[in-house]
Design a protein around this nucleic acid. Structure first.
Length: 505
DNA sequence: AACATGTACG
């Protein structure tokens, strides 16, 4: 702009119509120049032009921060609003928040004579998904049906993602199946939906359906990133390695999104070394990638490494979040690093991260596993918030290790009140009674458990051998090779004990 | 002017 202005007579050749300002906005992105062009638009009498208002709304929103407020001022002052202007303003709120504003604007729009079009619905539905507002989303869906736009591919894809986000995974699948010609986003939305709803098997099955049935649509980095949590959940190392090889084969850059998914997948499949190699390969690491690798070390008992990499992350200036502290604290607790755990716990305040139930539970677990049950109880007593099921559950787990039945009863009593549907914890108490021969008490707990009806499945480990997935639960004797497995398990336990003795001596 | 992606205690 300054360069053009310096050409003599330029302003006479160039007509300063709305297209001129539109182009001008296209090539200027700093807050100052956007504001200056905005002033010019008003000064030259183009302020009433809804097309320019749309451009300004988009531009201001792109600036980030408080830019969206400037965008809203442009929208509010526009003397006339066409559907484009409504759409870009709704889009701004859907993407940058507050998403409730997107919905409020849509409601205003419905009361005008301007008709929403096939661009409007994806924006509004996205806002509903971000808020998890199921009722509003259903209403918008109904509007789209009435407007005859629900068969639009973008609207359908947005609805699939929305219902998946609201845990209506079957509704999502039904809509997905209705899409006659699916595109990459259709497949990605549905695969991601399954992954996020703990339907790991379905996610992987759908990928295979995509590869089999849709010859034109090829998986991209979004497909892979959505698939990886499913591979991790099933410890499906074959599928996970296929995903990894696909990344390499198609020359995808190893960004933090793919990296964190792959790190977690390999860690869950027991391949810590591969997870570590992958972590180092990511050029621009971010918080989530660090969280993944810290958890990976922690879950494999390498707490020292987990803490080292946690410190390295802080040195790099990456701000930790609540999840990051959960990963670091649990690493400490599995390795008995009580002192380090408390240091990290105290750091939460200085980083402005709020301490949640899970963090307190980690600390109880840390003390409890280390055998400091009294200190754990004191810690619970000093908590500034009411201890929840997570906290009592951690204490109960520790009582189980150290056979403190009285304290276990106390913790279990609280758990019955707070978290009556969690079967695994009562099973732990019942097992303790059985260990000391208090069969009647054990039977009483198991009966109470049955009476409550809902039985959450117990946790289990999995391992994939060739093409078969084997699962193992606590006290599980259902596997055809149970006898052999327990022989090996006993050998391992002997090795661990010898190792511990060697470490002490 | 459009919809889809990663990390979480026991």
């Amino acid at each position: 702009m300054p360069a053009w202005g310096s050409i003599p007579g330029f302003h006479r050749v160039l007509k300063r119509d709305s297209f001129y300002y539109s182009r001008l906005l296209q090539c200027h992105s700093s807050p100052k120049s956007v504001a200056r062009i905005h002033a010019q638009i008003i000064a030259t009498g183009h302020g009433h032009n809804p097309f320019l208002a749309s451009k300004l709304v988009s531009r201001y929103t792109d600036l980030g921060g408080r830019g969206i407020d400037d965008a809203r001022r442009v929208f509010d002052r526009a003397p006339q609003r066409d559907i484009l202007l409504w759409n870009v303003m709704i889009r701004s709120y859907a993407n940058s928040g507050p998403q409730t504003e997107a919905i409020i604007l849509y409601c205003h729009l419905r009361r005008t004579s301007v008709r929403p079009n096939c661009y409007t619905y994806p924006f509004v539905i996205k806002a509903c998904a971000a808020l998890g507002d199921e009722n509003e989303g259903r209403a918008v869906h109904a509007d789209a049906v009435r407007a005859g736009l629900d068969s639009d591919l973008f609207v359908s894809n947005a609805l699939v993602a929305f219902y998946a986000k609201c845990c209506e995974i079957e509704t999502a699948r039904n809509l997905f199946d209705e899409i006659p010609v699916k595109d990459l986003v259709s497949w990605n939305s549905m695969i991601a939906g399954y992954s996020q709803n703990d339907c790991a098997y379905e996610a992987i099955a759908l990928l295979h359906q995509m590869l089999r049935e849709d010859v034109v649509t090829k998986p991209d980095r979004v497909t892979i990133a959505a698939l990886l949590p499913a591979c991790a959940a099933l410890a499906a190392v074959q599928e996970g390695m296929w995903a990894h090889s696909y990344v390499i084969k198609t020359g995808m850059e190893m960004d933090a999104r793919l990296g964190s998914g792959l790190v977690s997948m390999y860690a869950n499949c027991g391949r810590l070394d591969t997870a570590q190699e992958l972590f180092e390969r990511v050029r621009e690491p971010n918080l989530i990638l660090y969280n993944s690798i810290i958890r990976a070390y922690g879950m494999h008992g390498h707490a020292k490494e987990a803490v080292v990499i946690f410190s390295k992350m802080l040195e790099m200036g990456i701000e930790p979040d609540g999840i990051c502290f959960i990963c670091a604290l649990s690493a400490c607790s599995h390795a008995g690093m009580v002192h380090e755990g408390f240091e990290i716990f105290e750091m939460m305040d200085s980083y402005g991260v709020e301490k949640g139930q899970v963090h307190y539970a980690c600390m109880v677990d840390l003390l409890g596993r280390a055998g400091q049950l009294r200190r754990a109880v004191e810690f619970i007593g000093r908590m500034p918030v009411d201890p929840g099921g997570d906290v009592w559950g951690a204490l109960l787990g520790a009582c189980r290790i150290y056979n403190d039945i009285e304290l276990a009863e106390e913790a279990a009593k609280k758990l019955f009140l707070l978290d009556p549907e969690n079967a695994g914890r009562y099973a732990a108490l019942a097992k303790m009674y059985e260990d000391v021969g208090r069969w009647e008490d054990a039977a009483r707990v198991r009966k109470a458990l049955r009476d409550r009806g809902v039985r959450k499945p117990l946790g289990c480990s999995m391992v994939e051998v060739d093409t078969e997935v084997h699962t193992f639960g606590v006290e599980d004797e259902s596997h055809p090779m149970t006898a052999e497995i327990y022989v090996v398990l006993e050998q391992l336990q002997k090795l661990v004990v010898e190792d511990e003795i060697a470490a002490i001596g």
